[in-house]
């Protein structure tokens, strides 16, 4: 309750709202009690709900629900089998992978990417790449294909205050 003080600046005590000071059990019990209260209240409105349902043609629940118990039991058991089978397959697959690959990393750590390899990947000469990588602030213009076309590098990281160097292709 952090409402701002009104313009007239009246001194009014703020309500205390600190539900976190209750024990979790106390909080949970009060929440359940309120929920039961709402359910009891809603129960009083069941006749109204029924009339509304009739008005919208929902009076055949017996056919769809009670009349189809056999079919529903059959379908639900098929679903249950599918759900258990799918879940079990995933867990068995995870266990298989765990057993197969545990502690057996055959791949050696990837080699560090050299500056030359990076330069060729981004289409730059190595000196220009170095200038870009050393710059504290740089301006880069790209061509229509999104490749670096021009670099204007500010002072390098290790030489603050140096003049901006221009480099273009």
């Amino acid at each position: 309750m952090t409402a701002q003080a009104p313009e007239t600046d009246l001194q009014i005590p703020e309500p205390i709202h600190r539900p976190d000071l209750q024990t979790p059990i106390q909080r949970g019990a009060f929440a359940v009690l309120s929920l039961l209260g709402w359910l009891a209240w809603l129960y009083l409105f069941v006749p109204l709900l029924t009339v509304l349902a009739w008005a919208f043609g929902v009076h055949r629940f017996d056919r769809y629900v009670l009349g189809s118990v056999g079919v529903s039991a059959f379908t639900l058991s098929v679903y249950a089998v599918i759900i258990v089978a799918a879940g079990l397959t995933l867990v068995l697959w995870a266990i298989y992978n765990l057993l197969r690959f545990r502690g057996k990393d055959r791949r050696s750590p990837p080699p560090t990417v050299s500056e030359a390899a990076l330069a060729s990947a981004v289409g730059l000469e190595i000196t220009r790449l170095r200038r870009l990588r050393r710059a504290r602030v740089a301006w880069v213009r790209c061509d229509d294909l999104g490749r670096i076309a021009q670099i204007e590098a500010g002072p390098p990281v290790d030489r603050a205050g140096a003049e901006a160097t221009r480099d273009s292709s």
């Binding site: 740089a138 880069v140 213009r141």
Partner: peptide, 17 residues
């Protein structure tokens, strides 16, 4: 560190630069 692209290029190009 700051890199300014002089024209808008899209996120992928910005990431590549």
């Amino acid at each position: 560190r700051v890199i300014h692209l002089t024209e808008n290029q899209g996120k992928a190009v910005a990431l590549r630069v």
